[in-house]
């Protein structure tokens, strides 16, 4: 934490130097946030296992940090859960078994993609419901906007002939 101290002593640093330091401090901040993301050193037997590990850690939500997946979380419990997933994969457990393991301990909250059940019906089909509702309202508006009482006029033969004559007249004038 040398930088903030330097930044707070304007007498020591000229304007340009200050800006430079501020930029450097910002860059440092960005680097720390990178360093936060979790680094695990798991050894997998093959690429398929590693792929499954990645997919699974992305699917589960960190119970502590709530809005990050297990992959993105540096929380202690996320670390432990990643380790459990790794051990289960190496142990030959299927994805379904691993999901069951998580569900039994942390409940539905652990899934980023909620399972389809009665409680989540609205979550899954709510958007569709709103789409249908919106479509219905738009249809109503369109129907009402159409001028009323103007049904298509059907001309009989003599009227048709008159119309032709009139149109020819107009054409002739051009």
């Amino acid at each position: 934490m040398i930088f903030p101290a330097l930044l707070n002593s304007p007498r020591k640093a000229s304007g340009f130097l200050r800006t430079l330091l501020q930029i450097a401090a910002l860059a440092l901040l960005c680097m720390t946030s990178n360093a936060w993301s979790a680094i695990d050193t798991f050894e997998f037997e093959n690429d398929e296992q590693q792929q499954r590990f990645r997919t699974l850690s992305n699917e589960f939500r960190c119970p502590m940090c709530q809005n990050t997946s297990l992959t993105g979380s540096g929380g202690g419990v996320a670390e432990d859960l990643r380790r459990e997933i790794y051990l289960m994969i190496v142990d030959g457990k299927t994805d379904a078994e691993i999901e069951q393991f998580m569900l039994e301990r942390y409940g539905d909250f652990i899934f980023y993609k909620p399972r389809l059940m009665t409680e989540t019906l609205l979550l899954w089909f709510g958007p569709l419901l709103f789409l249908v509702l919106g479509g219905w309202i738009v249809m109503g508006i369109i129907r009402r906007a159409r001028p009323q009482g103007q049904e298509a006029v059907v001309l009989d033969n003599s009227d048709q002939a008159r119309l032709h004559k009139l149109l020819e007249k107009v054409d002739g004038q051009d």
Binding site: P63, M64, G75, G76, V77, D80, E84, R105, Y106, G107
Partner: peptide, 13 residues
């Protein structure tokens, strides 16, 4: 120490 019992108890902190 490794939080294994915690996981079985659904502990998150």
């Amino acid at each position: 120490a490794d939080g294994r019992l915690g996981i079985d108890l659904g502990v998150y902190g």
